[in-house]
Design a protein around this nucleic acid. Structure first.
Length: 189
DNA sequence: CTTAGGATCGCCT
DNA sequence: GGCGATCCTAAGC
């Protein structure tokens, strides 16, 4: 199996490793985005994952090829963006929870209805709204428009902790963040 | 067909 | 810290 190197990441690795590698990567959608500062790993065999019970109409993108998007609606209101990893059929992915607003900040402010930079992308629902992510991007390839991924700097300091907003498998430390970023959805302990 | 619940956010107290 | 918004999904009958 050839390893894909988009943004310098081994997309065939397990979701925990990919979630860690994604910290510091620049993610743009139609030119709007910035440095990823917070991610969470999910995998089949993980009771908190949408892929836990196997493929279905909603999560099918998670079982497709890696380096593609999986977008779902949360609580009927918020779109959330995941990046699929591992070989097709594994049902693994990484939830993008927050990024540092660096490109297209004006467009983010219009979409989010606030000029507070810390509130533009500090949470998965906010981030999707700021970048214009909806169901239309579900299953889309990450190496083609409107997506742009740029490799992280050589050295990034990464912190980790338990995941947020789930009721199962809460003790698994599969949440990762860029150390001391002001743009986290919630602090790490 | 019906129903319960959700990887959230923002406003309320 | 608590809760309502709002709607899609999956599972149960």
């Amino acid at each position: 199996m050839t390893k894909q190197q988009l943004a310098g990441i081994d997309w065939d690795a397990d979701s925990g490793q990919v979630a860690r590698q994604l910290i510091g990567v620049t993610l743009l959608v139609d030119g709007v985005g910035g440095r990823i500062v917070e991610t969470e790993a999910y995998d089949q065999g993980d009771a908190a994952s949408h892929s836990f019970n196997g493929p279905n109409q909603r999560n099918i993108a998670m079982f497709g090829p890696p380096a593609h998007a999986y977008v779902y609606l949360s609580h009927g209101i918020h779109w959330c963006l995941n990046l699929v990893c591992r070989e097709a059929g594994h049902g693994a992915g990484v939830l993008i929870r927050a990024l540092a607003p660096e490109h297209g900040v004006d467009r983010m402010m219009v979409r989010r209805g606030t000029q507070d930079v810390r509130k533009l992308c500090s949470g998965p629902g906010k981030l999707a709204q700021a970048l214009g992510v909806t169901r239309a991007l579900n299953s889309a390839a990450l190496d083609a428009p409107p997506f742009t991924l740029l490799a992280a700097p050589q050295a990034v300091e990464v912190v980790s902790g338990p995941r947020i907003g789930i009721s199962k498998a809460v003790d698994v430390p599969w949440r990762f963040g860029l150390a001391e970023s002001p743009y986290w959805s919630r602090p790490f302990r």
